Structure formats: structure tokens, C-alpha cells
Measured scan of single mutants.
Amino acid sequence: KFNKELSVAGREIVTLPNLNDPQKKAFIFSLWDDPSQSANLLAEAKKLNDAQAPK
């Protein structure tokens, strides 16, 4: 279960257009550290992506 959630969340995070590479890497490392938090980490990444969207 975690492997699928981890890969789905990881793929989504790397495609978020408004995150820079260090931010993406930080989220990916957090996913590896605790795969059970993949849904929460993906939600946080999406929030940050939205907040950094060009206005």
C-alpha cells in the first residue's frame, strides 16, 4: 500500500510547476522518511504550489 501511495505522491510532487527543485527534493525526502504521511505531504506540497503560483 505505501509503495503505491509513495510513487503516486512522488510523481505528483515532481510535476508541481510552482515548486523549485529544493522544495520538491525536501518533500520527496520526507516521503521516503515516512511513507505513511504521503497523503498529508502531497496536500502540503499542493498548498505550497498554489501559494507560489504567479499572480
Rank of each mutant, 00 (worst) to 15 (best):
N3G: 14
S30E: 12
P54T: 08
Q37Y: 04
K4E: 14
D21S: 07
R11M: 13
K55T: 10
P17A: 07
P22C: 15
S36D: 08
D21T: 10
G10C: 15
K47S: 12
D33C: 15
F27E: 04
A9M: 11
L6E: 04
D50K: 08
K46E: 04
Q37V: 04
D34A: 04
V14A: 11
L31S: 03
I13T: 01
E44K: 08
L42Y: 02
A51H: 08
A26D: 13
K47L: 09
L41E: 03
D33F: 09
K47M: 10
N18H: 13
L41S: 02
L42M: 05
P54Y: 04
L19C: 04
K55N: 11
W32P: 02
F29R: 14
N3S: 11
I28H: 03
T15E: 13
P54E: 08
N18Y: 14
K46F: 03
F2G: 10
L48R: 03
Q23G: 03
P54S: 08
W32F: 10
S36C: 07
N40Y: 10
D33K: 11
K24L: 02
L16W: 02
A9C: 09
N3M: 13
K46A: 04
P35A: 04
Q23E: 03
L42D: 01
L48G: 00
P54G: 09
A39P: 05
K25C: 15
Q52R: 04
E44I: 09
N3W: 15
I28W: 05
I28E: 08
G10N: 06
Q52P: 01
A45Y: 00
K25P: 06
A43C: 09
V14G: 06
V8H: 11
D34P: 01
G10Y: 15
I13S: 02
N20M: 07
L48A: 03
I13A: 01
A53L: 05
F29D: 15
S36W: 04
S30T: 08
K46R: 13
S38C: 14
A43D: 08
R11P: 02
L41I: 14
K46L: 07
N20W: 06
F27H: 00
K55A: 10
S30G: 08
W32L: 11
N49F: 02
A45I: 02
L42S: 01
Q37N: 12
L41H: 03
A26G: 11
L48Q: 04
N40L: 12
A51P: 01
I28S: 02
S36T: 10
A9I: 15
K1L: 11
V8S: 12
L42N: 02
W32Y: 12
N40S: 12
K47A: 13
F29N: 14
S7R: 11
R11G: 05
N40H: 12
N3A: 11
I13F: 02
L16S: 02
A26Y: 11
P22T: 15
V14I: 14
Q23K: 02
L19H: 01
A39E: 13
Q37A: 11
L42T: 03
Q37C: 10
A9N: 04
L41C: 05
K55L: 11
L16R: 02
D33R: 06
Q37M: 07
K1T: 12
A39F: 07
L41M: 04
K1C: 15
F27W: 00
L41F: 03
S36Y: 07
A45V: 00
V14P: 03
A43V: 08
A43W: 05
D33N: 09
N49K: 01
E12H: 08
P22H: 15
E5W: 09
K25W: 15
K1H: 12
A53D: 08
S30P: 06
D21F: 10
G10W: 15
N18C: 09
K55C: 12
P22R: 14
T15N: 14
D33Y: 06
N3R: 05
V8R: 13
N49D: 04
T15D: 12
A51M: 13
E12Q: 11
E12K: 10
